[in-house]
Design a protein around this nucleic acid. Structure first.
Lengths: 200, 200, 200, 200
DNA sequence: GACTAAACGAGACGGTACGTCGAGTCTTTGT
DNA sequence: ACAAAGACTCGACGTACCGTCTCGTTTAGTC
């Protein structure tokens, strides 16, 4: 789980430091939303690491970001478990909104959406499958408690809950207001409502 | 409905022809998925229109695409109306999948997702709000027939139906298979299921 | 006779000035013998003209030097005509030595010797054929006066006179002393001595 | 007199093998006329010897070539001695032409002409002084037989004979045709023709 | 039908970034 | 302890596209 540069044979010392300094420059650029600062030239300038070194290790900006993304892969943050499915869903949805509105995501998402680099695409796919699978636990618990239908797979429910958020942020650029989230949770709750025969 | 080049004082003749030839080049590039061919230089080469002329009229690639996107705004295609909500939703979903999988969308979507150009963002927002509002008619009809709850706004139902498709195409790059669509429609149908008191 | 950029359509304007400033930088570098300063990057720095502009106009250092060389092509300097062939030859030889010992030649000759660029090779060939043809006049006059044999072509005589100078400067790096020149002239004089039957 | 790599402390072992493998790579590059293959990187690649090793032993490409040139210093090839000075001169001239036209010379000569490395310059100077001194024997014999004047030093005669060949190959890039050689020999013969008083 | 102003064609320029290559230095590793 | 391996800095290469500029040339619409 070392990222793309598997060949890292000399973990101690200069190489590791190079890696860190370049990553720092990338993070800085992402946080500031300065897409232009993600050019290799500019990253080299900011990190103090020479252009050719970056090329040698990562080949391209996208490889670099893929590598970084892997490091960012969501630590298994504890899920809300209030006993109330709606409340749990709302918390998760708000958390995702907060994440997507954060500068680093605002910058990164379009990059991921637009890339043709397989490494970056794969890293991103991994990120989301991991996030969704983890979050699905909420629905699974609700199913076990008889609070959610078993006719919808937990991971699909999560997809339906979160997809509209991504749509608004990435595509239609509509606001992700409080009211929108509430509405979204209501819809998910309806989708997950147990049928009459499941209530027993 | 003049597009971005409001300054167009001489609609007839050469100017119009210039506009068409450049648009044709843009469309061609989009269809071939050749992002590189969307550079002003390459468009100039392909269209036979001089670089400076393109700059004068559109200022940038994004302005150009915004202008084109406006022209592409969905003609009000007839909606399916089979009397069966599930079937109608499935048809719409499949149609959207087909559109998004088409080369021109595959190329354009990331551009839209990634742009910072307000004109392009606005043109895109207009495109989708128009598409969604139009499609919502299906749900509205179902509500009138008592086949769908009135507790979910038609436009929100459409959002929930289509958002996962965009998510998969743009972000997670999961397949948009037949099974996925079926599953999606099932979820939407559950969301729209009339409550017991609505059935009367 | 405008050098390589025959297309120069705007002689009075910026283009002409660009040309001059770059040439000045090249001349400066040649005179200082700083081969490294003949890199496009360094010439751009010194001339204040942008790298890409130089590439556009000359494609490479060698094209540039070829262009410059054409401009340097020997103005038809007056030839010595003392009535004494030996003395005339000596003067020409010394003049060539002086030219070759000048910093600009010292830098340029190896470039010409080493180039694979056809334009530079051609420009150089032109330079020398012109120089030799011009110088041959001395021998021609001597022939007319009966002071030199007609069995050696004037241009060959010049070649034999001057070639050892080039050999020493370029290849063997032996000194081109006064004594060497005298010796050289003696040899040429012997080569050109009229046969008994020509003396009449 | 082992060349530049004075550091060679272990003549029989690995060091000697390294030397040979690198030399082989240099020779190969010279013969193929691939100047680019004379870079340290490429030589390392071809020879299988590590870059740093080459740096340690020779410091630069030029040192390496100087070292090699010393090894190539002309074995004392037997001189023609037909009793006919003209014929002998012609044979020598043709042999030199053949040498210079050989790929290895074509590649090496410009390097020598252009170098600023004193070791390489010295090695080259040694090569030519040895070649010329050796060849001068032809003229010396002719003098002893009364077939050539004593007023021209043998080594100078050789210089006059061969210099035009170098001039054409290196500088003016004129052809070194059969006719040219004949003409050249004629001129040298005239230069060496004994005076009336020497004929006795 | 000639005139005028907008639009277009042409092409040079300065500028940023690209990705690559070779030179030469310095560090880590293995023996 | 030392040489091999290799990661690093540095700078040049040649190219692509950007956006700007100055000219000169159509051409559309008007008087």
């Amino acid at each position: 789980m070392e990222g793309v540069d598997q060949v890292r044979t000399r973990p101690g010392g200069r190489s590791a430091q190079v890696r860190e300094r370049v990553f720092a420059a990338v993070r800085e650029a992402l946080e500031q939303g300065e897409t232009a600062a993600l050019s290799i030239d500019e990253l080299a300038r900011r990190s103090g690491i020479h252009r050719t070194t970056i090329y040698r290790r990562w080949l391209s900006t996208e490889g670099l970001i893929a590598d970084l993304l892997i490091a960012l892969t969501p630590v298994e943050t504890p899920l809300p478990d209030t006993g109330d499915l709606r409340r749990d869903l709302a918390r998760v949805a708000r958390r995702v909104v907060a994440t997507l509105e954060a500068p680093i995501s605002k910058t990164m998402l379009p990059l991921i959406a637009g890339t043709t680099d397989p490494r970056l695409a794969e890293a991103a796919a991994g990120y989301w499958s991991s996030l969704f699978a983890h979050t699905a636990e909420i629905v699974r618990r609700a199913q076990e408690r008889g609070l959610a239908t078993r006719e919808v797979r937990p991971i699909d429910a999560v997809e339906s809950l979160l997809a509209p958020i991504y749509l608004r942020v990435l595509v239609t650029r509509q606001p992700t207001s409080r009211a929108f989230i509430d509405n979204l949770v209501t819809r998910s709750a309806r989708m997950l409502a147990p049928g009459p025969e499941e209530k027993a």
